[in-house]
Design a protein around this nucleic acid. Structure first.
Lengths: 201, 201
DNA sequence: ACTTAGAGTGACCGGTCAGTAACATCAAGA
DNA sequence: TCTTGATGTTACTGACCGGTCACTCTAAGT
Protein backbone atom coordinates (compact mmCIF):
# COMPACT_ATOMS: atom_id res chain seq x y z
CA UNK A 1 0.00 0.00 0.00
CA UNK A 2 1.59 3.15 -1.14
CA UNK A 3 -1.42 5.17 -0.23
CA UNK A 4 -0.42 8.14 1.75
CA UNK A 5 -1.17 11.76 2.01
CA UNK A 6 -0.91 12.24 -1.71
CA UNK A 7 -3.42 14.61 -3.20
CA UNK A 8 -3.23 13.32 -6.71
CA UNK A 9 -5.36 11.95 -9.42
CA UNK A 10 -8.31 13.83 -10.61
CA UNK A 11 -10.41 12.28 -7.97
CA UNK A 12 -9.29 13.81 -4.76
CA UNK A 13 -10.85 11.18 -2.62
CA UNK A 14 -7.96 11.30 -0.21
CA UNK A 15 -9.46 12.94 2.75
CA UNK A 16 -9.47 9.63 4.53
CA UNK A 17 -6.71 10.29 7.02
CA UNK A 18 -9.27 12.51 8.53
CA UNK A 19 -9.91 13.22 12.17
CA UNK A 20 -12.01 10.14 12.78
CA UNK A 21 -9.30 7.87 11.50
CA UNK A 22 -6.53 9.60 13.39
CA UNK A 23 -8.61 9.32 16.52
CA UNK A 24 -9.26 5.63 16.03
CA UNK A 25 -5.59 4.91 15.40
CA UNK A 26 -4.44 6.86 18.40
CA UNK A 27 -7.08 5.30 20.62
CA UNK A 28 -6.16 1.83 19.45
CA UNK A 29 -2.58 2.37 20.48
CA UNK A 30 -3.32 4.07 23.80
CA UNK A 31 -6.08 1.70 24.82
CA UNK A 32 -3.83 -1.26 24.21
CA UNK A 33 -0.77 0.19 25.87
CA UNK A 34 -2.33 1.75 28.94
CA UNK A 35 -5.73 0.18 29.15
CA UNK A 36 -9.12 1.52 28.12
CA UNK A 37 -10.35 2.81 31.44
CA UNK A 38 -6.97 4.34 32.14
CA UNK A 39 -7.02 6.34 28.92
CA UNK A 40 -9.15 9.47 28.89
CA UNK A 41 -10.93 10.82 25.88
CA UNK A 42 -8.92 14.00 26.07
CA UNK A 43 -5.62 12.18 25.92
CA UNK A 44 -6.79 10.28 22.87
CA UNK A 45 -7.67 13.54 21.18
CA UNK A 46 -4.41 15.14 22.19
CA UNK A 47 -2.36 12.30 20.71
CA UNK A 48 -4.55 12.17 17.61
CA UNK A 49 -4.17 15.93 17.23
CA UNK A 50 -7.92 16.24 17.09
CA UNK A 51 -10.64 17.55 19.33
CA UNK A 52 -13.28 16.01 21.46
CA UNK A 53 -15.95 17.33 19.17
CA UNK A 54 -14.44 15.49 16.24
CA UNK A 55 -14.44 12.32 18.27
CA UNK A 56 -18.06 12.65 19.31
CA UNK A 57 -19.10 13.58 15.80
CA UNK A 58 -17.60 10.31 14.56
CA UNK A 59 -18.41 8.06 17.50
CA UNK A 60 -21.50 8.39 19.67
CA UNK A 61 -19.60 7.41 22.81
CA UNK A 62 -16.34 6.08 24.14
CA UNK A 63 -17.84 2.59 24.16
CA UNK A 64 -18.62 2.92 20.47
CA UNK A 65 -15.04 3.93 19.79
CA UNK A 66 -13.86 0.91 21.74
CA UNK A 67 -16.22 -1.31 19.76
CA UNK A 68 -14.94 0.06 16.45
CA UNK A 69 -11.36 -0.61 17.47
CA UNK A 70 -12.17 -4.11 18.62
CA UNK A 71 -13.90 -4.88 15.34
CA UNK A 72 -10.79 -3.73 13.55
CA UNK A 73 -8.59 -5.85 15.80
CA UNK A 74 -10.78 -8.83 15.05
CA UNK A 75 -10.55 -8.27 11.32
CA UNK A 76 -6.78 -7.99 11.49
CA UNK A 77 -6.55 -11.28 13.29
CA UNK A 78 -8.81 -12.93 10.78
CA UNK A 79 -6.71 -11.60 7.94
CA UNK A 80 -3.66 -13.05 9.60
CA UNK A 81 -5.28 -16.45 9.88
CA UNK A 82 -6.60 -16.29 6.35
CA UNK A 83 -3.12 -15.54 5.12
CA UNK A 84 -1.99 -18.82 6.60
CA UNK A 85 -5.08 -20.78 5.62
CA UNK A 86 -4.98 -19.74 2.00
CA UNK A 87 -1.34 -20.30 1.30
CA UNK A 88 -0.41 -23.33 -0.70
CA UNK A 89 0.91 -25.82 1.78
CA UNK A 90 -0.08 -29.06 3.37
CA UNK A 91 -2.58 -28.79 6.21
CA UNK A 92 0.09 -29.86 8.63
CA UNK A 93 2.45 -27.23 7.29
CA UNK A 94 -0.23 -24.58 7.67
CA UNK A 95 -0.50 -25.38 11.33
CA UNK A 96 3.23 -25.02 11.74
CA UNK A 97 3.09 -21.71 9.88
CA UNK A 98 0.36 -20.54 12.23
CA UNK A 99 2.56 -21.28 15.20
CA UNK A 100 5.37 -19.26 13.70
CA UNK A 101 3.07 -16.36 12.85
CA UNK A 102 1.88 -16.36 16.44
CA UNK A 103 5.47 -16.35 17.70
CA UNK A 104 6.30 -13.43 15.45
CA UNK A 105 3.31 -11.45 16.63
CA UNK A 106 4.14 -12.14 20.24
CA UNK A 107 7.74 -11.13 19.74
CA UNK A 108 6.75 -7.63 18.72
CA UNK A 109 7.48 -5.13 21.45
CA UNK A 110 4.77 -4.05 23.84
CA UNK A 111 2.60 -7.12 23.51
CA UNK A 112 0.63 -7.90 26.62
CA UNK A 113 -2.25 -10.09 25.47
CA UNK A 114 -5.01 -10.30 22.92
CA UNK A 115 -6.59 -6.84 22.72
CA UNK A 116 -10.05 -8.35 22.63
CA UNK A 117 -9.58 -10.39 25.78
CA UNK A 118 -7.86 -7.47 27.44
CA UNK A 119 -10.89 -5.32 26.72
CA UNK A 120 -13.21 -8.03 27.95
CA UNK A 121 -11.20 -8.22 31.14
CA UNK A 122 -11.66 -4.53 31.68
CA UNK A 123 -15.42 -4.75 31.24
CA UNK A 124 -16.56 -7.93 32.94
CA UNK A 125 -20.25 -7.10 32.74
CA UNK A 126 -21.51 -9.55 30.17
CA UNK A 127 -23.87 -7.06 28.56
CA UNK A 128 -21.07 -4.70 27.63
CA UNK A 129 -20.74 -4.44 23.82
CA UNK A 130 -17.23 -5.84 24.11
CA UNK A 131 -18.56 -9.28 24.94
CA UNK A 132 -20.62 -9.61 21.80
CA UNK A 133 -17.69 -8.63 19.60
CA UNK A 134 -15.28 -10.95 21.37
CA UNK A 135 -17.71 -13.84 21.13
CA UNK A 136 -18.23 -13.29 17.41
CA UNK A 137 -14.56 -12.87 16.56
CA UNK A 138 -13.45 -15.83 18.62
CA UNK A 139 -16.18 -18.00 17.15
CA UNK A 140 -15.05 -17.18 13.62
CA UNK A 141 -11.46 -17.81 14.58
CA UNK A 142 -12.40 -21.13 16.06
CA UNK A 143 -14.31 -22.14 12.95
CA UNK A 144 -11.22 -21.54 10.83
CA UNK A 145 -9.16 -23.48 13.32
CA UNK A 146 -11.55 -26.42 13.29
CA UNK A 147 -11.37 -26.45 9.50
CA UNK A 148 -7.58 -26.51 9.60
CA UNK A 149 -7.67 -29.32 12.13
CA UNK A 150 -10.07 -31.31 9.98
CA UNK A 151 -7.91 -30.81 6.93
CA UNK A 152 -4.96 -32.10 8.91
CA UNK A 153 -6.99 -35.15 10.01
CA UNK A 154 -6.92 -34.32 13.69
CA UNK A 155 -8.50 -36.93 15.92
CA UNK A 156 -10.93 -34.44 17.44
CA UNK A 157 -10.88 -31.23 15.40
CA UNK A 158 -13.07 -29.24 17.79
CA UNK A 159 -11.04 -30.11 20.86
CA UNK A 160 -7.87 -29.57 18.87
CA UNK A 161 -9.03 -26.09 17.92
CA UNK A 162 -9.93 -25.23 21.50
CA UNK A 163 -6.59 -26.50 22.73
CA UNK A 164 -4.84 -24.31 20.18
CA UNK A 165 -6.96 -21.40 21.35
CA UNK A 166 -5.94 -21.99 24.95
CA UNK A 167 -2.29 -22.13 24.00
CA UNK A 168 -2.41 -19.02 21.84
CA UNK A 169 -4.28 -16.88 24.32
CA UNK A 170 -2.21 -18.30 27.14
CA UNK A 171 1.13 -17.48 25.60
CA UNK A 172 0.01 -14.00 24.61
CA UNK A 173 -1.07 -13.33 28.17
CA UNK A 174 1.83 -14.89 30.03
CA UNK A 175 4.23 -12.91 27.90
CA UNK A 176 4.52 -9.93 30.27
CA UNK A 177 5.95 -11.99 33.11
CA UNK A 178 7.60 -14.82 31.18
CA UNK A 179 9.37 -12.87 28.49
CA UNK A 180 9.53 -13.57 24.78
CA UNK A 181 12.16 -16.32 24.86
CA UNK A 182 10.56 -18.58 27.39
CA UNK A 183 7.09 -17.94 26.06
CA UNK A 184 7.82 -18.77 22.44
CA UNK A 185 9.85 -21.82 23.42
CA UNK A 186 7.07 -23.11 25.63
CA UNK A 187 4.44 -22.33 23.01
CA UNK A 188 6.35 -24.24 20.36
CA UNK A 189 6.81 -27.14 22.74
CA UNK A 190 3.13 -27.22 23.64
CA UNK A 191 1.87 -27.01 20.09
CA UNK A 192 4.32 -29.57 18.74
CA UNK A 193 3.27 -31.93 21.52
CA UNK A 194 -0.35 -31.40 20.56
CA UNK A 195 0.43 -31.98 16.90
CA UNK A 196 2.32 -35.17 17.61
CA UNK A 197 -0.46 -36.41 19.82
CA UNK A 198 -3.48 -35.47 17.75
CA UNK A 199 -2.29 -35.50 14.17
CA UNK A 200 -1.47 -38.59 12.13
CA UNK A 201 2.19 -39.31 11.80
CA UNK B 1 6.12 -0.42 74.29
CA UNK B 2 4.02 -0.12 77.35
CA UNK B 3 0.93 -1.93 78.35
CA UNK B 4 -0.30 -3.52 75.24
CA UNK B 5 -3.18 -5.79 74.92
CA UNK B 6 -1.47 -9.06 74.66
CA UNK B 7 -3.71 -11.87 73.68
CA UNK B 8 -2.80 -14.70 75.91
CA UNK B 9 -3.16 -18.32 75.24
CA UNK B 10 -6.27 -19.20 77.12
CA UNK B 11 -8.31 -16.19 76.45
CA UNK B 12 -10.98 -15.81 73.86
CA UNK B 13 -9.87 -13.10 71.61
CA UNK B 14 -12.14 -13.91 68.78
CA UNK B 15 -13.54 -10.85 67.28
CA UNK B 16 -11.28 -11.36 64.35
CA UNK B 17 -13.87 -10.57 61.74
CA UNK B 18 -12.73 -7.02 62.22
CA UNK B 19 -13.42 -4.17 59.87
CA UNK B 20 -10.13 -4.55 58.03
CA UNK B 21 -10.84 -8.17 57.31
CA UNK B 22 -14.40 -7.57 56.20
CA UNK B 23 -13.12 -4.87 53.89
CA UNK B 24 -10.45 -7.09 52.39
CA UNK B 25 -12.92 -9.90 51.79
CA UNK B 26 -15.49 -7.64 50.20
CA UNK B 27 -12.88 -5.95 48.06
CA UNK B 28 -11.48 -9.26 46.91
CA UNK B 29 -14.88 -10.34 45.71
CA UNK B 30 -15.82 -7.04 44.09
CA UNK B 31 -12.45 -6.44 42.47
CA UNK B 32 -12.52 -9.87 40.91
CA UNK B 33 -16.10 -9.75 39.78
CA UNK B 34 -16.31 -6.22 38.44
CA UNK B 35 -12.69 -5.20 38.05
CA UNK B 36 -10.52 -3.06 40.26
CA UNK B 37 -10.84 0.27 38.51
CA UNK B 38 -14.56 -0.27 38.13
CA UNK B 39 -15.01 -0.75 41.87
CA UNK B 40 -15.01 2.36 44.01
CA UNK B 41 -13.77 2.54 47.56
CA UNK B 42 -17.18 3.55 48.75
CA UNK B 43 -18.83 0.51 47.24
CA UNK B 44 -16.27 -1.73 48.90
CA UNK B 45 -17.04 -0.13 52.24
CA UNK B 46 -20.76 -0.35 51.67
CA UNK B 47 -20.59 -4.08 50.91
CA UNK B 48 -18.17 -4.68 53.78
CA UNK B 49 -20.49 -2.72 56.08
CA UNK B 50 -17.58 -0.56 57.11
CA UNK B 51 -16.49 2.99 56.56
CA UNK B 52 -13.86 4.65 54.49
CA UNK B 53 -11.95 5.65 57.57
CA UNK B 54 -11.70 2.04 58.66
CA UNK B 55 -10.33 1.18 55.27
CA UNK B 56 -7.75 3.92 55.31
CA UNK B 57 -6.72 3.07 58.88
CA UNK B 58 -5.92 -0.46 57.74
CA UNK B 59 -4.59 0.26 54.25
CA UNK B 60 -2.68 3.37 53.24
CA UNK B 61 -4.27 3.47 49.81
CA UNK B 62 -6.45 1.59 47.37
CA UNK B 63 -3.32 0.25 45.73
CA UNK B 64 -2.16 -1.14 49.07
CA UNK B 65 -5.50 -2.85 49.49
CA UNK B 66 -5.14 -4.32 46.02
CA UNK B 67 -1.65 -5.50 46.87
CA UNK B 68 -2.82 -7.17 50.07
CA UNK B 69 -5.54 -9.01 48.19
CA UNK B 70 -3.15 -10.11 45.49
CA UNK B 71 -0.70 -11.45 48.06
CA UNK B 72 -3.52 -13.43 49.55
CA UNK B 73 -4.53 -14.74 46.13
CA UNK B 74 -0.96 -15.79 45.53
CA UNK B 75 -0.76 -17.60 48.83
CA UNK B 76 -3.99 -19.44 48.12
CA UNK B 77 -2.67 -20.61 44.80
CA UNK B 78 0.57 -21.76 46.38
CA UNK B 79 -1.34 -23.67 49.01
CA UNK B 80 -3.30 -25.37 46.29
CA UNK B 81 -0.13 -26.41 44.52
CA UNK B 82 1.51 -27.50 47.73
CA UNK B 83 -1.49 -29.66 48.47
CA UNK B 84 -0.82 -31.52 45.26
CA UNK B 85 2.95 -31.55 45.58
CA UNK B 86 2.97 -32.93 49.06
CA UNK B 87 0.49 -35.71 48.64
CA UNK B 88 1.83 -39.21 48.43
CA UNK B 89 1.68 -40.12 44.79
CA UNK B 90 4.00 -40.71 41.91
CA UNK B 91 5.33 -37.59 40.21
CA UNK B 92 3.28 -38.40 37.14
CA UNK B 93 0.18 -38.85 39.23
CA UNK B 94 0.79 -35.49 40.90
CA UNK B 95 0.75 -33.81 37.53
CA UNK B 96 -2.54 -35.46 36.69
CA UNK B 97 -3.92 -34.35 40.03
CA UNK B 98 -2.82 -30.80 39.28
CA UNK B 99 -4.76 -30.85 36.04
CA UNK B 100 -7.87 -32.00 37.83
CA UNK B 101 -7.47 -29.39 40.55
CA UNK B 102 -7.20 -26.75 37.87
CA UNK B 103 -10.32 -28.04 36.16
CA UNK B 104 -12.22 -27.94 39.43
CA UNK B 105 -11.13 -24.39 40.11
CA UNK B 106 -12.11 -23.28 36.65
CA UNK B 107 -15.48 -24.95 36.94
CA UNK B 108 -16.46 -22.78 39.87
CA UNK B 109 -18.97 -20.12 38.88
CA UNK B 110 -17.83 -16.62 38.05
CA UNK B 111 -14.29 -17.50 37.04
CA UNK B 112 -12.86 -15.17 34.44
CA UNK B 113 -9.10 -15.56 34.72
CA UNK B 114 -6.26 -15.56 37.22
CA UNK B 115 -6.88 -12.64 39.58
CA UNK B 116 -3.22 -11.71 39.48
CA UNK B 117 -3.07 -11.50 35.69
CA UNK B 118 -6.41 -9.73 35.64
CA UNK B 119 -5.01 -7.10 37.97
CA UNK B 120 -1.85 -6.83 35.93
CA UNK B 121 -3.97 -6.31 32.84
CA UNK B 122 -5.76 -3.46 34.52
CA UNK B 123 -2.51 -1.75 35.47
CA UNK B 124 -0.12 -2.17 32.55
CA UNK B 125 2.43 0.29 33.87
CA UNK B 126 5.29 -1.95 34.86
CA UNK B 127 6.11 0.04 37.99
CA UNK B 128 2.73 -0.56 39.51
CA UNK B 129 3.02 -2.67 42.69
CA UNK B 130 0.91 -5.32 41.03
CA UNK B 131 3.74 -6.27 38.72
CA UNK B 132 6.18 -7.05 41.48
CA UNK B 133 3.68 -9.29 43.25
CA UNK B 134 2.68 -11.09 40.08
CA UNK B 135 6.31 -11.67 39.16
CA UNK B 136 7.10 -13.09 42.59
CA UNK B 137 4.07 -15.33 42.82
CA UNK B 138 4.45 -16.65 39.30
CA UNK B 139 8.15 -17.28 39.83
CA UNK B 140 7.45 -19.35 42.93
CA UNK B 141 4.71 -21.21 41.12
CA UNK B 142 7.07 -21.93 38.26
CA UNK B 143 9.77 -23.20 40.62
CA UNK B 144 7.34 -25.72 42.07
CA UNK B 145 6.30 -26.70 38.59
CA UNK B 146 9.88 -27.20 37.47
CA UNK B 147 10.46 -29.41 40.49
CA UNK B 148 7.43 -31.51 39.67
CA UNK B 149 8.60 -31.80 36.08
CA UNK B 150 12.06 -32.87 37.19
CA UNK B 151 10.60 -35.45 39.55
CA UNK B 152 8.60 -36.82 36.66
CA UNK B 153 11.73 -36.97 34.49
CA UNK B 154 10.51 -34.46 31.93
CA UNK B 155 12.84 -33.98 28.99
CA UNK B 156 13.08 -30.23 29.56
CA UNK B 157 11.64 -29.40 32.99
CA UNK B 158 11.82 -25.62 32.53
CA UNK B 159 10.09 -25.61 29.17
CA UNK B 160 7.62 -28.15 30.49
CA UNK B 161 6.78 -25.87 33.39
CA UNK B 162 6.34 -22.86 31.12
CA UNK B 163 4.12 -24.84 28.78
CA UNK B 164 1.99 -25.87 31.72
CA UNK B 165 1.83 -22.23 32.77
CA UNK B 166 0.65 -21.18 29.33
CA UNK B 167 -2.02 -23.84 29.33
CA UNK B 168 -3.26 -23.04 32.81
CA UNK B 169 -3.43 -19.30 32.33
CA UNK B 170 -4.84 -19.79 28.86
CA UNK B 171 -7.70 -21.99 29.93
CA UNK B 172 -8.56 -19.76 32.85
CA UNK B 173 -8.74 -16.77 30.53
CA UNK B 174 -10.57 -18.35 27.62
CA UNK B 175 -13.21 -19.65 29.99
CA UNK B 176 -15.56 -16.64 29.63
CA UNK B 177 -16.08 -17.16 25.93
CA UNK B 178 -15.46 -20.91 25.62
CA UNK B 179 -17.47 -22.17 28.55
CA UNK B 180 -16.51 -24.73 31.16
CA UNK B 181 -17.11 -27.86 29.10
CA UNK B 182 -15.02 -26.97 26.07
CA UNK B 183 -12.33 -25.36 28.19
CA UNK B 184 -11.77 -28.28 30.53
CA UNK B 185 -11.88 -30.76 27.69
CA UNK B 186 -9.32 -28.79 25.70
CA UNK B 187 -7.16 -28.27 28.76
CA UNK B 188 -7.12 -32.00 29.51
CA UNK B 189 -6.31 -32.74 25.89
CA UNK B 190 -3.47 -30.23 25.79
CA UNK B 191 -1.90 -31.35 29.05
CA UNK B 192 -2.17 -35.05 28.28
CA UNK B 193 -0.53 -34.40 24.91
CA UNK B 194 2.27 -32.56 26.69
CA UNK B 195 2.66 -35.37 29.19
CA UNK B 196 2.78 -38.01 26.51
CA UNK B 197 5.30 -36.02 24.54
CA UNK B 198 7.60 -34.90 27.32
CA UNK B 199 7.35 -37.52 30.01
CA UNK B 200 8.81 -41.02 29.82
CA UNK B 201 6.33 -43.72 29.01
C1' DA C 1 -16.05 4.63 86.65
C1' DC C 2 -12.28 5.81 83.78
C1' DT C 3 -9.31 5.13 80.11
C1' DT C 4 -8.29 3.96 75.61
C1' DA C 5 -8.30 2.39 71.07
C1' DG C 6 -10.86 0.90 67.38
C1' DA C 7 -14.78 2.01 64.67
C1' DG C 8 -18.42 4.99 62.71
C1' DT C 9 -20.38 9.58 60.68
C1' DG C 10 -20.92 12.93 57.25
C1' DA C 11 -19.08 16.59 55.13
C1' DC C 12 -15.58 17.96 52.27
C1' DC C 13 -11.38 18.65 48.85
C1' DG C 14 -9.08 18.49 44.57
C1' DG C 15 -9.00 16.15 40.56
C1' DT C 16 -10.63 13.65 36.52
C1' DC C 17 -13.88 11.92 33.48
C1' DA C 18 -17.41 11.55 29.62
C1' DG C 19 -20.09 14.26 27.14
C1' DT C 20 -22.27 18.97 25.43
C1' DA C 21 -22.89 23.76 23.71
C1' DA C 22 -21.86 27.85 21.08
C1' DC C 23 -19.03 29.75 18.07
C1' DA C 24 -15.04 30.21 14.76
C1' DT C 25 -12.26 28.39 10.78
C1' DC C 26 -11.07 26.53 6.50
C1' DA C 27 -11.39 23.86 2.59
C1' DA C 28 -13.47 22.90 -1.64
C1' DG C 29 -17.45 22.57 -5.13
C1' DA C 30 -21.48 24.86 -7.30
C1' DT D 1 -18.67 34.15 -4.52
C1' DC D 2 -21.40 31.65 -1.76
C1' DT D 3 -22.41 27.58 0.33
C1' DT D 4 -21.50 23.54 2.74
C1' DG D 5 -19.70 20.39 5.63
C1' DA D 6 -16.15 18.71 8.16
C1' DT D 7 -13.17 20.51 11.55
C1' DG D 8 -11.06 23.28 15.57
C1' DT D 9 -11.60 26.21 20.06
C1' DT D 10 -13.02 27.20 24.58
C1' DA D 11 -15.66 26.62 28.23
C1' DC D 12 -18.79 24.19 30.67
C1' DT D 13 -21.80 20.39 33.22
C1' DG D 14 -22.61 16.82 36.30
C1' DA D 15 -21.01 12.86 38.11
C1' DC D 16 -17.73 10.19 40.43
C1' DC D 17 -13.44 8.99 42.69
C1' DG D 18 -9.64 8.59 46.02
C1' DG D 19 -8.54 10.43 50.09
C1' DT D 20 -8.85 13.59 54.43
C1' DC D 21 -10.90 15.89 58.44
C1' DA D 22 -13.03 16.71 62.87
C1' DC D 23 -15.82 14.61 65.60
C1' DT D 24 -18.66 10.97 68.00
C1' DC D 25 -19.69 6.45 69.55
C1' DT D 26 -18.83 1.95 71.58
C1' DA D 27 -16.82 -1.64 74.17
C1' DA D 28 -13.38 -3.89 76.62
C1' DG D 29 -9.63 -3.91 80.40
C1' DT D 30 -7.92 -2.05 84.52
Amino acid sequence: MSASVEPEAKESREKRPRAAQRIQEAAKELFYRHGIRATGIEEVCRVADATKMSLYRAFPSKDALVAAILEEDGQEMECLMDGVCQCSATPREKLNRLVEVMCEMIAQPGQRGCPLLLAQSEFPDSDHPTHRIVAEVKARKRAKMVQMAQDADAKDPAAFADAMGIMMEGSWFTLPFMGVERTTKAFRLATSALFRDQLPA
